[in-house]
Amino acid sequence: MTPPETTTPTGTAAPAGPGAPVFPTAAALALGDDALVLSHRLGEWAGHAPVLEEEVALANIALDLLGQARVLLSMAGDEDELAYLREERAFRNLQLVEQPNGDFAHTIARQLYFSTYQLLLHAELAAGDGPFAPLAAKAVKEIAYHRDHAEQWTVRLGDGTDVSHERMQRACTALWRFTGEMFQPVEGLGLDEKTLTAMESAWLDSVTGVLGRAGLTVPDGPRGGAWAAGAGRQGVHTEPFGRMLAEMQHLHRSHPGASW
């Protein structure tokens, strides 16, 4: 076990040796942190999900995200050090993914918003020939199942009982202000402004379609500007994130170098 090094989440990783690939660290961290943090949040459902099938489904989705996070964080440095030894301000994930699970409807709204974005993003990356293309081509197939799961539940809850409809609507509205951040440019991702704008409009079309089929109203609150949230990519996080990290990191920090 080597002592933790300070990781600067900008620029590119220093090559490990001659001929070693150089990855855009900032972009790898942004995408890797999204996957890691959401994976942890979904893992918190273990033992608490409404039915056994959902417990298994959310854990499976969390596992897919953890696999993606491991590949992405390994592009930026040592995956364990990055996951367990960084302070809150060094994480580059979207504020959306760090939001607490809330009720099941909140988790599903978060899944719908994020998986729709992630599917569009990885389809874009897979179509290119950049450093993220191999992972994206693989991840896009996994994410299609995540999005499908979120869509099914959004429609079922929105078009369900009065109570489920009301909860689903409340969740969609509460998380709306976190969705503008997804389409901010990320250094090293290789997506220009035109592509991001097209992705955002595809995201809006897709989410609007699902909410429509679910009998839900598209929230009308701001997604950008002063009243919207979203500075996770700059390392500014919401209050619940610190507590989540404390729980996620405490074992590793309490027992440095421990192994099975």
Binding site: Q152, R156, S206
Partner: peptide, 21 residues
């Protein structure tokens, strides 16, 4: 089948016979 996702899905009352992604 790749590239055909995401698709709009029809939904049964509680469980689906044809809700394939």
């Amino acid at each position: 089948q790749e590239g055909n996702v995401p698709v709009a899905l029809s939904l049964g009352p509680t469980r689906t016979l044809d809700g394939e992604p």
